[in-house]
Write a protein that binds this DNA or RNA. Structure first.
Lengths: 173, 173
DNA sequence: AACAATATTTGAAAATTTTCAAACGAATAA
DNA sequence: TTATTCGTTTGAAAATTTTCAAATATTGTT
C-alpha cells in the first residue's frame, strides 16, 4: 500500500469512527489528516487535501480548537493560520469524553432528589429514586477511574514516549 | 414538581444525552421510560407514553435489545411483548462503549504496521508510525482500566446495591 | 488609508435521518 | 379454518444536518 493510500484509509477510518461517536465525519477527517502530518497545515491545505470547500473546514476547525484537539501555530513570515494536532490528542479526547460523562452523574443526583421530593411517595417514585441513586454512584466511580487512568497516562506513560522523539516547535495562538 | 413532570424531564434529559452520544434521541427516551418504570412496558404503552407511532419504537427497541440495554419479559396470559431495562443497564452501556473503543486500539495497530511496511520510509511514514504506536498504547491501557472498573462495579458495588431491593421477576425471551 | 490575502458567516441546495401511516406478516384464539 | 391482535416492514413526507458558493469581515502589507 502506498503512502497516499494509507493516509486516505486513515482519514476514512477516522471519519467513520467520529461519525459513530456522534460527531460529524468531517471532524474525524481533519483530525486524521493533522495526526498524520508531521508539519502544521493551513486551512487551504486541509480543504484541498479533503476536497472540501473552506466554509465547513473553517467551522469544524474552530470546534476542534474549542475542544482542544487541535491548535493554531504561528509560522513566522506566513499570513495563513496553521493547525496541528495537540501534543496529547488521545488524552485530550478522553478528557472531553470523561467531562461529558460527569453530566450523567449530575443527572442522577438531580433526579434522585426530585423523586424523593414528591409529596405522594409511591412505588414508582421510590423505584426511580433507587435507580437514580445507582446512576449517580456508577458515574461517580467511573469518574474516579477515568481521572486515575488519565493521570497515569500523562504522568507516567506519555512522558516516556515523548523522550524518544523531537518536541514540536512554534508558538501558539 | 409532580411525578409526570419529573418523568417527562428525565425523558428529555436522556433524549439529549443520547443525541450527544450520537444515538437517536428516541433511544434515550425509551431507555429513560423503562428505567423509570417499575413494571415492564408493552410497545403500545411505550409509544403511547412518548406520543410516537409504533414503527420507529419497534425498530429502536430491537436495537436496544441487540445492545443488551433492554430485554423482553414474558408475562403469563399476555400476548403482547413487554420490555424492561436490564438489571445492570449502566454497566452494560459502559461495556458497549468500551467495546467500541477497542476498535481504536486495532486501528492504531493496523496503521502502525501499514506505515512501517511502506518501502520508501520518509519523515511522514516514521511520524505516522510513531503516532499510531501511541494510539495503540493509549487505547490498550484505557481498555485495561475500563475492564478493571467494570469488574469492580459488578463484583463489589452492584451486588451490595441489589441486596437492598427486590429482585425482578419473569422469564426472558 | 487603500489594497490584498485570508478567514468567517450566511442562505440556499443537497444529502441524510427521522417519523408516520399503511400494508404486510406472524401468532393466537375462536 | 377464519378472525383478531400484535409486531415489523416499507415507501414517502418531514425534519435535520451537511455542504457549497458567495458575501462579508478581519488581518496584515504597502
Amino acid at each position: 500500500m502506498t503512502k497516499p493510500e494509507i493516509i486516505q484509509n486513515l482519514i476514512n477510518a477516522y471519519a467513520e469512527a467520529y461519525q459513530n461517536l456522534g460527531y460529524s465525519s468531517l471532524m474525524g477527517k481533519i483530525v486524521a489528516l493533522l495526526i498524520a502530518s508531521p508539519e502544521p497545515m493551513s486551512l487551504d491545505e486541509i480543504s484541498g487535501e479533503l476536497q472540501m470547500s473552506k466554509g465547513p473546514v473553517s467551522q469544524i476547525a474552530r470546534k476542534l480548537k474549542e475542544h482542544r484537539l487541535i491548535e493554531k501555530v504561528w509560522i513566522p513570515g506566513e499570513r495563513k493560520d496553521y493547525y496541528r494536532a495537540v501534543e496529547d490528542i488521545f488524552g485530550q479526547a478522553f478528557a472531553n469524553y470523561a467531562s461529558s460523562m460527569r453530566r450523567n452523574q449530575r443527572l442522577g443526583e438531580e433526579f434522585e432528589q426530585l423523586s424523593k421530593a414528591v409529596p405522594a411517595q409511591d412505588e414508582q417514585t421510590r423505584h426511580l429514586a433507587t435507580r437514580m441513586n445507582e446512576m449517580k454512584l456508577f458515574y461517580e466511580m467511573m469518574d474516579e477511574s477515568n481521572r486515575a487512568f488519565l493521570q497515569n497516562w500523562r504522568d507516567n506513560v506519555k512522558p516516556g514516549l515523548e523522550e524518544l522523539q523531537d518536541e514540536p516547535a512554534g508558538k501558539q495562538s
